[in-house]
Amino acid sequence: DLPPEQWSHTTVRNALKDLLKDMNQSSLAKECPLSQSMISSIVNSTYYANVSAAKCQEFGRWYKHFKKTK
């Protein structure tokens, strides 16, 4: 379990794929700090720029909290 400071584009993509087993992209976009188009691009590997470090950390913090509450 990585601390949010160490999250990267790959970590975010893997976490998104895991979350999308249980929910669809639009529900996920309402919950998490990423937009639906960004989620779609990341999981389909069409998001060519890497997600910014700040966004990765924000998502990492959100993901840890989300997993605790589920």
Rank of each mutant, 00 (worst) to 15 (best):
Phe59Arg: 00
Lys67Met: 08
Ala15Val: 10
Lys64Thr: 10
Asn24Asp: 15
Trp7Met: 03
Lys68Ala: 05
Leu16Met: 12
Asp1Lys: 08
Gln36Met: 13
Tyr48Gln: 09
Asn50Phe: 03
Gln6Lys: 13
Val12Gln: 01
Lys17Met: 14
Ala53Lys: 14
Thr11His: 14
Ser45Met: 08
Leu2Phe: 11
Lys21Val: 07
Asp22Gly: 10
Leu28Met: 06
Ala54Asp: 09
Tyr63Met: 05
Ser35Arg: 02
Pro4Val: 10
Asp22Asn: 10
Gln6Arg: 13
Gln36Gly: 15
Lys30Asn: 08
Lys21Pro: 03
Ala29Met: 06
Cys56Val: 10
Ser41Gln: 09
Leu20Phe: 02
Ser52Tyr: 02
Lys21Phe: 05
Arg61Ala: 09
Leu34Asn: 01
Pro3Ser: 14
Ala53Thr: 09
Thr10Leu: 14
Lys21Asn: 12
Ser37His: 15
Arg61Lys: 13
Phe66Ile: 05
Ser41Ala: 10
His9Ile: 15
Lys64Trp: 11
Val43Gly: 04
Met23Val: 10
Phe66Cys: 11
Tyr63Cys: 01
Lys68Trp: 06
Lys68His: 09
Tyr48Gly: 11
Met23Phe: 15
Phe59Met: 05
Ser35Phe: 00
Pro4Tyr: 09
Thr69Phe: 06
His9Gly: 11
Val12Tyr: 00
Trp62Pro: 00
Ser40Trp: 08
Cys56Leu: 12
Gln57Ile: 11
Asn44Val: 03
Ala54Ile: 07
Ser41Met: 14
Tyr63Asp: 00
Gln25Phe: 14
Val12Leu: 12
Ser26Gly: 11
Ala53Cys: 09
Trp7Ala: 02
Cys56Arg: 08
Ala53Asp: 12
Asp1His: 01
Lys64Phe: 10
Lys68Gly: 07
Met38Ser: 12
Ser26Val: 13
Gly60Arg: 02
Trp62Lys: 00
Met23Gly: 07
Arg13His: 05
Lys55Pro: 03
Val43Asn: 13
Val12Pro: 15
Lys64Gln: 14
Ala49Tyr: 15
Lys68Tyr: 07
Trp7Arg: 01
Arg61Asn: 04
His65Ile: 01
Lys68Glu: 12
Ala49Phe: 11
Ile39Glu: 02
Lys30Phe: 06
Ile42Phe: 07
Ile42Ser: 02
Asn14Phe: 12
Asn44Arg: 05
Cys56Gly: 01
Phe59Gly: 00
Val12Trp: 02
Ser35Ile: 00
Leu20His: 02
Ser8Val: 09
Ala49His: 10
Arg61Cys: 13
Gln6Cys: 11
Asn50Trp: 06
Asp18Ile: 11
Arg61Trp: 06
Asp18Cys: 07
Pro4Lys: 09
Ala29Lys: 03
Ser8Ala: 07
Met23Asp: 07
Met38Tyr: 07
Asn24Cys: 03
Arg61Asp: 07
Ser41Trp: 06
Gln6Phe: 04
Cys32Met: 02
Leu28Cys: 02
Asp22Val: 11
Pro3Asn: 14
Pro3Gln: 03
Ala29Asn: 04
Tyr47Ile: 13
Val43Phe: 13
Tyr48Val: 08
Gly60Pro: 00
Gln57Ser: 08
Arg13Ser: 07
Pro33Leu: 00
Ser37Cys: 12
Pro4Asn: 14
Arg61Pro: 01
Tyr47Asp: 03
Glu31Gln: 15
Pro4Asp: 08
Asp18Ala: 07
Met23His: 03
Leu28Ile: 09
Pro4Arg: 09
Asp18Lys: 12
Glu58Ser: 05
Leu20Pro: 00
Ser52Glu: 08
Ser26His: 14
Asp1Met: 06
Leu34His: 01
His9Asp: 05
Tyr48Arg: 13
Asp22Pro: 02
Ala15Pro: 01
Met38Lys: 11
Ser40Tyr: 10
Gln57Phe: 09
Phe66Leu: 09
Thr11Phe: 04
Pro33Ile: 00
Pro3Trp: 10
Asn44Gly: 12
Ser26Arg: 11
Ala29Tyr: 06
Ser52Gly: 08
Lys70Trp: 13
Ala54Gly: 07
Asn44Ile: 03
Ser41Cys: 05
Cys32Ala: 04
Lys30Ser: 11
Ser40Thr: 13
Tyr48Lys: 11
Trp7Asp: 02
Asn14Thr: 14
Ser26Cys: 12
Thr10Ser: 12
Asp18Tyr: 12
Gln25Glu: 14
Leu28Gly: 03
Thr10Asn: 06
Gln57Asp: 08
Lys67Cys: 12
Glu31Val: 15
Cys32Trp: 01
Pro33Asn: 12
Cys56Gln: 01
His65Asn: 14
Asn44Ala: 07
Ala15Gly: 04
Asn50Asp: 08
Asn24Ile: 01
Ile39Gly: 01
Ala49Met: 10
Asp18Gln: 12
Cys32Ser: 07
Gln25Trp: 12
